[in-house]
Design a protein around this nucleic acid. Sequence first.
DNA 1: GAGTGGTCTAGACCACGGT
DNA 2: CCGTGGTCTAGACCACTCC
Lengths: 239, 239
Amino acid sequence: MSGSVTYMDIKTEIVGRIRRGDWPLDTIIPGEVELAAQLGCARATVNRALRELADEGVVERRRKAGTRVVAGQNRSARIDIPVIRTQIEAAGAHYRYELRKRKIVAARDPIRARLDLQSDQEVLSLECLHFAGDAPYQLEVRWINLAAVPAARDEPFEQIGPNEWLLREKPLTDAEHVMSAGNATKHQASALHIEERDAVFIVERRTWLGAETITWVRLVHVGATFQLRSRNLQQLETD
Amino acid sequence: MSGSVTYMDIKTEIVGRIRRGDWPLDTIIPGEVELAAQLGCARATVNRALRELADEGVVERRRKAGTRVVAGQNRSARIDIPVIRTQIEAAGAHYRYELRKRKIVAARDPIRARLDLQSDQEVLSLECLHFAGDAPYQLEVRWINLAAVPAARDEPFEQIGPNEWLLREKPLTDAEHVMSAGNATKHQASALHIEERDAVFIVERRTWLGAETITWVRLVHVGATFQLRSRNLQQLETD
DNA sequence: GAGTGGTCTAGACCACGGT
DNA sequence: CCGTGGTCTAGACCACTCC
């Protein structure tokens, strides 16, 4: 019996064959039934291995057509957008939060579109600053859809940031992130204690609960000190 | 029998319960066996649903301890780093490639460390420019580990960019991306036809084949026109 | 129409990790 | 120790899609 063949074994074996050149790009690899026979395991095990490889972008699968090698074509990466307090404290710095603005307004056009609102519904407009030690780290400009999150109307956001508050109060089902670079505006520069036109790294996030848009936020970071990292490990055995 | 319960049904149901507040943050939800009984399906089906939810960061699983709700804590997003030609052509623009520099050198320190080289091994240093129509779109500065990719020594890279060439020639098992914002250096500004200190969006990528580092590349984009997007859909039914 | 992946099931054994 | 998740199996039926 000698221990079963695991789905990890199969992934390693298949990536190995691709790597060795046995299965060049665009090759249609053998079907699940045949692989199961070759490798001496159940089809379900092969299926799990191939499903994960497809998920990682190594192969592409289509019914009837089979499984095709596309390794490397789809450069997809998984990034973690850090929770600000966690990130700052992980770096060993003291985290401080400051509310700069809090105002209930009728949604005008750029915001109305982003929150997907029909009429001039009320939204909560917030501006906050997050510090790492004494240095400003992130400027947060946020709009919250009050129709979706009525409880936000009574929350002062003086002790707790809207990010953490929303995480606690409101589950979410869906998120969109847009990352870009920009030159600091006068306003951003003065808030972040940098020079005007210094580079800033901007993350814009929209979140939904079902079909309802909850919030839109622009997170502005000092470009010189901020990075997003991703590492996709295949966890292959050494050979 | 009324059609089986699918793992998707289970995911929807569980996210629904979390959303409705039945299972607040940090709740330990029922075990697989019990859920299978409740929902009328096999344990394997529940397992698949929970495994995927864990993968998406909605819950956290530990043997013996059970499955805990952590929804929203881990903001992870999947982004696709576009293949430059595809991206430009998808936008309806003409793609043009230009080689600006090609040189074989002994790896000095910043590069040696990035490529994880032991001694002063030879590396291929390249600089290329990618155009969308007439406008420079991306400046590519790349080093290739010649020990790992000897064939690159004989490739002129005049007709084909190193990105596309490497994708064809060399599989990869692992990739790391670092994204940041910066102010254009004089060199970058002149290459990209922008002003010095204009914001640039920088993606740095390292790739590996097994334990061997293949290449390190810095991709510099005009900040005002470049974005990375991600959208994590939960694909829940409307309710 | 027929072949391939997509999924469910029922049962089994294993491995990790709280107690 | 022993409960929980982690995985494998063997078999079955279904759904998509290419021919």
